[in-house]
Amino acid sequence: MYKKRRIERQHLPCFLKVFNGINGKPMGFLGNVSADGLMLISSLPLMVGADFDLLLKTPTEEGPQQDIVLRASCLWCHEDVTPQHFDAGFSLQWAPPEYGQLVSALQQYFSFHSLPASA
């Protein structure tokens, strides 16, 4: 069911920490990201079907970090290939415009661009 993605997700292992939006405690790292959802890599399994407030703390060029708060539903969770780690897939219920900007920036950063042919 989840293999029919409209947009290919970008692979993003262990670059950005994800925190619990309620208590600020670390939950894991972003594994993949798209405009409609994300994958979280965590040391604990997460409850499937539950809604979560997630907090991303992103660096900015100006200096202080930018906090992006998301509301997402956990669609699936299974053990990662790395021992004692779990992958959880989330569907976004609500995200601010800054999340879309983050997705675009990460897609550009992690994409391969062909160079123009030299004459």
Rank of each mutant, 00 (worst) to 15 (best):
M1V: 07
Y2C: 01
K3M: 03
K3I: 01
K4H: 09
R5N: 00
R5L: 01
R6F: 02
R6S: 05
R9S: 05
R9A: 08
Q10M: 05
P13L: 04
P13I: 04
C14V: 07
C14P: 01
L16T: 14
F19P: 09
G21E: 09
I22Q: 13
I22F: 03
N23G: 00
N23P: 02
N23I: 05
P26K: 00
M27Y: 07
G28R: 06
G28H: 02
F29M: 03
G31A: 13
V33R: 08
V33F: 14
V33N: 07
S34V: 13
S34C: 14
A35P: 02
A35C: 10
A35K: 14
A35E: 15
G37F: 10
G37K: 11
G37Y: 10
M39H: 07
M39W: 04
M39Q: 15
L40F: 05
I41P: 05
S42E: 09
S43C: 06
L44F: 14
L46V: 05
L46S: 01
A50S: 01
D53R: 02
L54M: 01
L56W: 03
K57S: 12
K57I: 13
P59E: 04
T60C: 08
Q66K: 15
D67W: 06
I68F: 11
V69H: 14
L70Q: 02
L70G: 03
R71N: 05
R71S: 13
A72Y: 01
C74R: 09
W76G: 01
C77G: 05
E79A: 15
E79G: 12
T82V: 04
P83H: 05
Q84E: 14
H85N: 09
F86D: 08
F86L: 08
G89H: 10
G89V: 10
G89N: 08
F90K: 08
S91L: 15
W94L: 14
E98Q: 15
Y99T: 12
V103Y: 10
S104T: 10
S104Y: 10
A105T: 14
Q108H: 11
Y109L: 15
S111G: 03
F112C: 01
P116G: 00
P116C: 02
A117E: 01
